[in-house]
Amino acid sequence: MSEPASPPVTDTAALLPPPVAARGPRPTVIVDDLHVNYTVYATGRPAKNESTKLLRRAVNMRRARKIHALKGISFTAHQGEAIGVIGRNGSGKSTLLRAIAGLTPADQGAIYADSDPTLLGVNAALINELSGERNVVLGGLAMGLTPDQVREKYDDIVDFAGIGEFIELPMRTYSAGMGARLRFAIAASATHRILLVDEALAVGDADFQRRSERRISELRDAAGTVFLVSHSLKVIQDTCQRTLWIDAGILRLDGPSAEVIAAYNASVR
């Protein structure tokens, strides 16, 4: 982003920032050469050496294995953008979102972000032993709302989730779809400047999908940035104007959704 050649300025004008229009949309998330490793403990492949294999089994030693989930991702996201993230299973899409949400620390590189980005995910568990009601309250408080603000939004959240009397039951009794609906409703109740959505739209019936798509565009219009991970290329095409294609931890393509999706389809075929 280069500054336009500015005309000679007076002393007072020099103190003012350049006009906003000249700077283009403001960046909200800057990802700079991001690497993320996971250490997983697994018995893994059998040891080559039979004697050490027995030894390992005897002391039940777990081997640490490093998984290089993201290998140097860079891009800049701007205000008012909805960005789709596509790629095969295990390509690093969810890791990228978790890293941007500040939930998985970067091993190398950096992420700069405007405000605390919020991740809405299917896996994101609240507290399973507690009822939906208590999870709504706790979820709101965890996002930094005050008890009064939570009380104000409570009915909206419950209505949006639309899970009826199940709201009084512990979340462990919920179906996967109901849990995801409630989590989405809680997270979407606050206005986030940066919202990360991980496959949340894939669950729920057609009616819920329609409502959540509408809510996402509302959030984006509220001058936010939305990231959307989905295997449904149609949802990405409909909702996002720009798409990132992640392949084996590397950013393969970044550009207008139509182009990226076409290239992705060509490679999968």
Partner: peptide
């Protein structure tokens, strides 16, 4: 359902990363 997004200023960042 399609949503129109105001065009951001980036073109093809892949080329001029």
């Amino acid at each position: 359902m399609s949503v129109v997004v105001p065009a951001p200023s980036h073109g093809h960042p892949r080329d001029d990363r």
